[in-house]
C-alpha cells in the first residue's frame, strides 16, 4: 500500500470515529462546507476561474431539495438529487453566460447573476422570504434507516462526502482534469493545442455548481431548513476564504480551510461576543500576508523543501 493510500484510510477512520468524540451536528456541518469548498476549489484551484456567486447554487439546491421533500413529499434521496440537478442546471445557465469573460469580469458576471437568484429567493413565496423554508423532515434513508437520529444521519452525510470527494479526486487526476490545469496555466496554449476550451470550462462550472448544490442540499437536510443566508453573497465570499485559507489547488486544502472557519464560527460564537467578525477578518489578513499558499499549501511546500535538502 502506498503512503498516500494509508493517509486516506487514516482520514476515513478519523471520519468514522469523529461523532463519538465531537458533537456530530457540528462535524456534519463541517463536512457540508468542506464539500462546498472542494467543489469551489475544482473551479478556482484547478481551472483558475474565480466564481463569486457559488452561494446561489448552494442555496438553490437547499431550497429545491427542501421544497421537494417537504411539499412534494419526495423521499430524502430523491430530494437531494433534485436539489443537485437543479443546482447543476442553474450552473449551466450561469456558466454559459459567464465563461464568455475572464478574470475580474467573470467574477462580476457570476456575482451579478447570483444576486439575481438571491432576490428571486427573497421574493418567491415558496422560500418563506426572510423567515426561511423551515421544518423540512429528514425522512428515512431507503425507507427504513431513520435519519432523525443524528448518528445515522452522520454516516449518511459522511458517505455523501466521501463519494463527492472521490468524484472530485478522480476528476482532478483524469485527462479531463489535466486539460483543466492546462487551461489554468495557459489558456491560449490550450486553444492552440486544439482543445475546445469553452466547453471544458463550462463542464467544470456545471460540475462544480452541482457539487456545491449537493453540499447545500445536504446541509439543508442536517439543519432541516434553508434560509436566505445560504444564497447570500457573504457565503460566496466565505467559500473563497475557506479555499484560500486551506490552500487552493490542493486536494485537502478546502477540507482544512472549511473546518477551521466553521469550527471557529461555532466555537467563538459564545466566547468572544462581538469580536467574531474581527477575528475572522484578522485570520484572512494574516493568511494572505504570511502564508499565501494556504495551510495545506504551505505544509506541502515545507515537505518538498525538506525532501530537496535531503537529496
Amino acid at each position: 500500500m502506498s503512503r498516500r493510500a494509508i493517509a486516506y484510510l487514516m482520514l476515513l477512520a478519523a471520519g468514522l470515529a469523529a461523532p463519538f468524540f465531537i458533537y456530530p451536528v457540528l462535524v456534519m456541518k463541517v463536512l457540508c462546507f468542506a464539500l462546498f469548498a472542494c467543489a469551489f476549489n475544482l473551479l478556482l484551484g484547478y481551472t483558475g476561474l474565480l466564481s463569486f456567486g457559488h452561494a446561489a447554487f448552494f442555496g438553490a439546491a437547499a431550497y429545491v431539495a427542501g421544497h421537494a421533500i417537504k411539499v412534494w413529499g419526495l423521499p430524502t434521496e430523491l430530494g437531494l438529487l433534485a436539489g443537485t440537478i437543479a443546482a447543476g442546471a442553474l450552473g449551466w445557465a450561469v456558466g454559459s453566460l459567464a465563461i464568455r469573460r475572464t478574470g475580474i469580469y467573470f467574477a462580476m458576471v457570476t456575482l451579478a447573476l447570483a444576486q439575481m437568484i438571491y432576490f428571486f429567493f427573497l421574493e418567491a413565496s415558496f422560500t418563506g422570504g426572510e423567515d426561511g423554508l423551515q421544518g423540512v423532515p429528514r425522512g428515512a434513508l431507503l425507507g427504513f434507516i431513520d435519519l432523525s437520529n443524528d448518528l445515522n444521519l452522520y454516516y449518511f452525510v459522511l458517505a455523501i462526502f466521501v463519494f463527492a470527494f472521490w468524484l472530485i479526486y478522480r476528476t482532478i487526476h483524469s485527462p479531463f482534469g489535466q486539460i483543466l490545469k492546462a487551461i489554468r496555466e495557459n489558456e491560449p496554449r490550450a486553444i492552440s493545442l486544439g482543445y475546445d476550451v469553452a466547453k471544458y470550462k463550462l463542464l467544470a462550472f456545471v460540475l462544480s455548481a452541482a457539487l456545491a448544490g449537493l453540499a447545500g442540499a445536504t446541509k439543508m437536510l442536517v439543519f432541516k431548513f434553508a434560509t436566505l443566508t445560504d444564497a447570500h453573497w457573504h457565503l460566496s465570499g466565505e467559500v473563497v476564504l475557506m479555499t484560500i485559507l486551506g490552500g487552493m489547488g490542493t486536494v485537502f486544502g478546502p477540507l482544512v480551510g472549511s473546518s477551521v472557519i466553521v469550527v471557529l464560527q461555532n466555537e467563538l460564537a459564545d466566547k468572544v461576543g462581538s469580536l467574531v467578525t474581527v477575528i475572522m477578518g484578522s485570520i484572512f489578513v494574516i493568511c494572505v500576508l504570511l502564508f499565501r499558499r494556504g495551510i495545506v499549501g504551505e505544509i506541502i511546500a515545507f515537505y518538498k523543501r525538506m525532501l530537496g535538502q535531503k537529496a
Partner: peptide, 23 residues
C-alpha cells in the same frame, strides 16, 4: 447564563442551540 452570537445565520444559531440542549 450562557450566550452566543448567531451572526444572523440560521445554521449557526440552530447548531449552537442544539449543542446547548444536547451537551
Amino acid at each position: 447564563v450562557v450566550y452566543a452570537d448567531h451572526q444572523n445565520k440560521a445554521d449557526v444559531g440552530s447548531n449552537k442551540v442544539r449543542e446547548w440542549y444536547d451537551t
